[in-house]
């Protein structure tokens, strides 16, 4: 199988990488681009832990072929850190105890970031519905929902990002 070169922006940096046609974006991110902030607990679209933002939209990177990501902009949890400062959604996760083992956290953080950008005035029901594509086994979700409801104020522009 002949490889082909693709180019993508990963957390703001342009990266070129040779991929096979049958390789997933998850595989390429982890094993070729060494982007270990992208986790996986099932490799087949069930757990949501490999969620990244592709051109601003959350995708399960195990369900995307790497060739489909050619030319796209990919953001992971690591990419939300600006100048060494956590983003408001990341800070809210820390303060609300919205993580335990932390293995699912990068996925929840990027998904929540996308969700609040689209909907900075959510109801708890909307947050719960949106998060239901992702599995967290430790927290029982309640503190994750609290963190997202709280971080919404930053996305509404009511508070500056770095208080």
């Amino acid at each position: 199988m002949a490889g082909r070169m693709i180019t993508l922006r990963l957390n703001g940096q342009e990266r070129r990488v040779e991929v096979e046609d049958n390789e997933t974006l998850l595989y390429v991110l982890r094993y070729k681009l060494k982007e270990m902030s992208v986790k996986s607990a099932c490799w087949k679209g069930e757990c949501g832990l490999c969620t990244v933002l592709m051109d601003g939209k959350p995708v399960k990177s195990c369900m995307v072929l790497a060739v489909e990501a050619d030319g796209s902009d990919i953001v992971t949890a690591t990419g939300l850190v600006k100048d060494g400062e956590l983003s408001p959604i990341q800070k809210a996760f820390v303060e609300h105890g919205a993580l335990q083992c932390g293995f699912c956290t990068p996925a929840f953080v990027v998904a929540a970031h996308h969700f609040l950008q689209k909907n900075p005035n959510p109801t708890r029901e909307q947050v719960k519905e949106f998060l239901s594509g992702l599995i967290c086994r430790c927290t029982g979700y309640a503190q994750i929902i609290d963190a997202i409801m709280d971080a919404a104020k930053y996305y509404r522009g009511e508070q500056k990002a770095s208080p």
Binding site: A77, G102, F103
Partner: peptide, 21 residues
């Protein structure tokens, strides 16, 4: 007092290394 575990910072940024990584 409600103290977040210090490793929370690494976990929310995806930089915490697991054996998996």
């Amino acid at each position: 007092k409600p103290v977040p575990p210090p490793d929370s910072y690494e976990k929310v940024t995806g930089t915490a290394p697991y054996t998996f990584d």
